[in-house]
Nucleic acid binder design. Sequence first.
DNA 1: GTCTATACGAAGATAGAC
DNA 2: GTCTATCTTCGTATAGAC
Lengths: 190, 190
Amino acid sequence: MARSVREQMVDSAVILLATRGLDGTSFSEVLGASGAPRGSIYHHFPGGKDELIAAAIEVAGERAVALLRSLEGRSPVEIVDGFFAMWRAVLERSRFSAGCSVLAVTVAGGSGDADGLLGAAGRVFRSWQSALAAVLAAGGVPAGAAEPFATLLIAASEGAVALSRAERSYEPFDAVHQVLREQARGFQGI
Amino acid sequence: MARSVREQMVDSAVILLATRGLDGTSFSEVLGASGAPRGSIYHHFPGGKDELIAAAIEVAGERAVALLRSLEGRSPVEIVDGFFAMWRAVLERSRFSAGCSVLAVTVAGGSGDADGLLGAAGRVFRSWQSALAAVLAAGGVPAGAAEPFATLLIAASEGAVALSRAERSYEPFDAVHQVLREQARGFQGI
DNA sequence: GTCTATACGAAGATAGAC
DNA sequence: GTCTATCTTCGTATAGAC
């Protein structure tokens, strides 16, 4: 069963957000990348661009949560490695031209006030923190340490991906990964 | 001596980048915020928008480097605290509506290929890593650990600011700060 | 150094036919 | 569900007078 036109548009929006940012994710680009017909934009997304972008970062958020949950049962070091492997694949496949679609929406800033997209981005980030903290706790990280360490992992990986994009080098990303990996080792008492 | 028109435009661009992103930093906004006359855009920036943005992130970069250098001679914990205090002030003064101007340029992605602005952003990030690693080394962090830890601090602070913006809460930012502060304490053997 | 006026393109959004 | 056509707004950039 082929993916629906709507799903193709959302998938294209995820990729465009990650590579060109919020304003680079125009309808023209989305239609060009997805092959969707122009006339179907407001049929599938009556709320216009905001609805498309919100759907995109929610899908991206759910995919990352699914990956995090798949790490359940692993050790803290393995969880860190698995999480960073996901991000490194983004850099590798795009050759430093892609990053995080949720971060792109966050820093684009919208109109400045209580923007709906910013709230959606915040919910995605929170869902990542919860899922990661849960698998870390299941992996043996002490109760009080799992939440803050999960937040650090997410913040640091977001920043590391951005640094590596700007510097076009894996060096910042790998350095951050190694330091956090050592920290995770400390939770295992090895 | 009053700041020149050019300096006012650059300052406004720095703030607009941090709050509204790259595409939100239009000439209209810059002129409105700086009070500069419209006719002087291409007089001060013959290279157009790219030249203005490049100047803005370089100024923002130099300011952060100056703050980092002012922490020379302090302990690792004090350096971490000073660095995070700078970012927390950004969140506080803007009430979660501002972040890092260099990150905004990085994530906006330009045209996708070898963009000049992305290179400029990369150089700024590298200058932060060097300056921070230097003060950490001077503060007693072992030679091999200063560079990676500096990179982690920058990546994590960038991500933490973004998370707190999206969630409109100091919680992620403060959590990241505390974990890294503890790590810095480890370098002091207290 | 600064002004007005304007060219040119692309964006999001809507209307109405098919 | 999809199409074409169009509206409006806003972006960067340029020309030429003052």
